[in-house]
Amino acid sequence: MIRQAITRNAVILGLFAIGTAAALALTNQATLPRVECNRQNALIASLAQVMPDDRHDNVLITDRIEVRDPLLGNGAQHIYRARRDGAPSGVVLEATAPDGYGGAIDLIVGVDTGGRVLGVRAVPPHNETPGLGDKIERRKSDWITTFNGRSLTNPDDAGWAVKKDGGSFDSFTGATITPRAVVGAVHRALLYFRDHKEQVFQAPATDDAPDSMREACRG
């Protein structure tokens, strides 16, 4: 009798576990489109910070391409193209600084067609030291806005470094590695755009958003 009771309880527990796992899987599947939609909406808000609305009349998130180039970092990066009345007006480049103090730092860099920086933002999460390296975040410091208006000629090539290295950009007290990494990544993003501007605007857009996510965003 005891053995039968143990077997029966084991079967019941097994069926309960299977049922719970199935319910979790179904819930996860059902919420994935909404989670992805929320992520996309957060991205749209971030893009607007470095590519102002008055500079384009297209939807940035749907006019994007995917590229791979060491100047932008390892792996695939997206470039979001801004257009006004059908004509190119700028881009937002994803770029990665691989040499941050706490590891890689992901950035978005808004640039007009003349190669002038419109804005830069660090994309969370990152592992830079709280109170020091995290000053790359706009909510912690206005340091990231010092890139606004900069270009490959303002400053010149030698000026694209922190002042400790003879360049034009301030670093943080007690933290030089993080700003050095970000300055280098923004500089490389500008070099990439200078060398590939024509191809960037001619390439067909990449639409890799699943139908389920588009439906969730419309809902």
Rank of each mutant, 00 (worst) to 15 (best):
V11N: 02
Q40N: 11
R214S: 01
G103K: 12
M213P: 07
A23E: 04
S141L: 08
K164A: 12
G103H: 14
A45E: 15
G73S: 03
D165I: 11
A189W: 03
V67H: 03
C37F: 08
M1E: 13
L132A: 01
D69Q: 02
A95R: 01
A42R: 14
L190Y: 05
T96S: 14
E137P: 04
A30D: 00
L32Y: 05
S171G: 15
L191C: 07
F147P: 04
C217Y: 11
C217R: 14
I18P: 01
D156T: 13
R214Y: 02
V200G: 02
E128N: 02
A95Q: 03
L60S: 09
G159F: 07
D157H: 10
I136D: 02
V67L: 06
R194T: 06
R194F: 01
I79T: 06
Q29R: 13
G102W: 06
L43Y: 01
A48I: 07
D211G: 02
G100R: 01
A25G: 05
R34S: 14
I18Y: 01
F201E: 10
Q202C: 00
P210I: 10
R34C: 00
K197V: 11
W143I: 10
T206N: 09
L107F: 01
G167L: 04
T62F: 10
R64Y: 03
D170N: 13
I61G: 02
R150M: 13
R139S: 13
